[in-house]
Amino acid sequence: MVLPAIQVRDLRKRFRKRRRLRKATASAEWALGGVSFDVAPGETYGLLGPNGSGKSTLIRILSTLLIADGGEVRVLGHRLPDEQTRVRRLIGRVSVDAAFYKKLSARENLLYTALLYGLKPSVAEPRAMDVLERLGMEERTFTVPLEEMSRGMQQKISIARALMINPPVLLLDEPTTGLDPKSRRDVQTFLEDLRRREGTTIVLTTHDMAEAERLCACIGFLAHGRLVAEGTSELLKRAAEAATLDDAFIKLTGERVTDGETPAAAAKES
């Protein structure tokens, strides 16, 4: 029996909101209210949901940046947060905002990451270069400060940063949001190729239904911190008796992916 690469059981998290001159009080709504799912080794698992549904909270817990209030998370058998140091060696993360030292060049940012992970720059740099080439970037851009690059280029470097450490698990939090169609396609093709060649386990959050259908073997619909449906895109469409994944999402969750968020839901994510 093959153990799941990622196991999430009854995961719960809620944030406390501070009121002036009062002690922090727990938010009434759960950011994650008992989420459970498995991701098989080498599988790409898609998490779909509107802003505020708990996608980023889930990715942050898997990234060791948040500690859950309850439930259990295991990454390649290692339990969080107890074995967070081991898990950190196994995961790469790409977030929606390409968080870099904007004044530094791509090369300087990538070498810094390599050193931070204890890698030899001579080993990590060719790996990053290879990723960037496969993403369609030219070598000369390596020395350009990040602040002079387009968002698409920055996001590609963000992917190179996550992959230069050669992680068996990749956490992608809306990696293609805000990219132009060409860059989006480059990234999607690269991710397909990566899973095929390296067998990397990927958790992908996205608003883009077409992207989820293209990349994900299994898709989970997240709404109000709960996993309301899970399965292949065909299964979800059949279950909802819908022609498209978009329709299936609306039927199964009762909301729209992109513009259905309420201010309260959006605030929960912030």
């Binding site: 990234s63 940046l65 140091t85 905002d97 968080a99």
Partner: peptide, 14 residues
Amino acid sequence: WEGTLEYTFMAPVP
């Protein structure tokens, strides 16, 4: 300010 705090804190650095 740079926005890099999460990446530093999730790196496997004691």
